[in-house]
Design a protein around this nucleic acid. Structure first.
Lengths: 190, 190
DNA sequence: CGGGCCTTTGACTGGTTTCAACTTCTGTGG
DNA sequence: CCACAGAAGTTGAAACCAGTCAAAGGCCCG
C-alpha cells in the first residue's frame, strides 16, 4: 500500500485520512503467473494497477498467435480503455506475466470515487495524459524504426526488462517473430 | 464558438456564464493552408483545438521525408503531449492541412484554468482517456493488419476523409510510400 | 498556358515471415 | 532429486510484402 501512496503523492496532495478513504474504493488481489484477469469476449469490467509484478495485454490474431500490445509493471495501469469506458466486450486478454499484486476498480466504483474525491479527476487526468504521451512516442517509434532498430532501442533503454521477460514475449511486443529476434541476437553477438 | 460549447457539453455541465469565463482562457486563430503552428526543434508551448479545418503532426525521418503520425479534425486536440507537459523542445511539426480555425492554450493558462474551473480537470481527463483509447486501437491495427488491409480499413471507415485529404498524406499517415498506395488502388480497381 | 507537384507504372532489392527441424531450458511428478 | 515432456530458443532455406529508384503522365493553380 505504501507503494500506491507514494505513487499518488507524485501527482496529487492528500493526507493520511483521505488516502485511507480513497484506498477503500479499490480491491487488492494476488495473481499467479499466467493467471487470466480478463479474457477475450468478456465485458471489460475493471482497470488494474500493478503494485508488484507484471501484467500484459494481448489479442489473438487471425493465425491464432497471441499478439502482445502492452506490458504493465509497477505503478502502471492496464485495461482495454475503450471497452472499460463503455462497458462492452473486449477483444483483448489480460494475463499475469509474473506473480503479481494488483489493485482493481470497476467503473461504478471509480465514478463514485471521482464524485467523492474530485482530486482523483486530476490524478486520472495526469495518468491518462502520461499514458497518451507514451503511446504517441510509441507510435512514432513504430513508424521510424525497423524491427531490428526497435529491438536495439528497447534493449538498451530497458535492459532490466529484457532480463525479466521471456524472449518470445519481447518479440511479440515489438511486433515480430521469435525466429527473427533470434537472428538479430545472433547478429549482435558476432 | 457554438461548436466548442457543444463539444464541452458532451463531457461536462456548465452554464453560459461559466462557459464565457472558460473561453477567455483560450485564444482563437485563423490558419492558412500549409501554415506551421509548431516546428521541429521549438519548445512545444501550446495545445491546439480544431474548431474547423484540419491539422497534422509529422516528423522528418532520417531520409528527410515527412512522416505524418496524426491528423486532427473538428473537435480534436493536437499537440506533442510529452513536450507540452514538460515544456521542452519537440521533434515534431504541426501544420495546417486545410485553412483552419483553431483554439490554442498554453500550459500556464491551462493550469490557471484548471485551478479556477476544476470541472475542466474532468473534461481533460475524459479527453485524454478518449485519446488514449483511440491510440490503443490504433496500435492494435498497426500490429494486426498489413499495409493493404490498413488502407482498406481506413478507406471504408472514413471515406469522406479520403476525399478530403491528398493521397500522399494518407500514405504517410498509414506508414507506407505513395507508390505503394498507388499499387494498392490499382489492384482494387481491377 | 506553363511549371511544379501529385500520382502512376514497372523493375529490382531487401528486410522479415514462414516452415520445419533441431537443441536447450524449465518445471513438475514420481 | 532425477527424468522426462513440453516449452522456449536457434538455425537455415524459400517465399513475400513493401521499399527504392527512375521515368512518364496528369492535374491544379498561378
Amino acid at each position: 500500500m505504501e507503494t500506491f501512496r507514494q505513487h499518488l503523492d507524485k501527482f496529487i496532495t492528500i493526507n493520511d485520512e483521505e488516502f485511507a478513504l480513497i484506498l477503500s474504493f479499490f480491491q487488492m488481489l494476488e495473481i499467479k503467473k499466467k493467471q487470466d484477469l480478463m479474457v477475450d469476449g468478456e465485458v471489460c469490467k475493471s482497470m488494474f494497477f500493478v503494485l508488484k509484478g507484471c501484467l500484459r495485454k494481448f489479442f489473438i490474431n487471425e493465425k491464432g498467435i497471441e499478439q502482445t500490445t502492452e506490458f504493465a509493471i509497477e505503478n502502471w495501469w492496464i485495461t482495454d480503455t475503450f471497452a472499460y469506458e463503455h462497458q462492452i466486450k473486449s477483444d483483448f486478454c489480460i494475463q499475469a506475466v509474473e506473480r503479481s499484486t494488483i489493485l482493481t476498480i470497476d467503473l461504478q466504483m471509480q465514478e463514485e470515487l471521482l464524485k467523492k474525491h474530485p482530486v482523483m479527476e486530476r490524478y486520472f487526468r495526469m495518468i491518462y495524459q502520461r499514458a497518451y504521451a507514451a503511446s504517441e512516442r510509441r507510435i512514432r517509434y513504430l513508424y521510424e524504426m525497423s524491427r531490428e532498430e526497435l529491438y536495439l532501442h528497447f534493449s538498451t533503454q530497458y535492459p532490466w526488462f529484457i532480463q525479466r521477460i521471456p524472449q518470445y514475449l519481447i518479440a511479440s511486443f515489438l511486433g515480430f517473430t521469435p525466429e527473427y529476434l533470434s537472428e538479430i541476437r545472433a547478429k549482435l553477438r558476432s
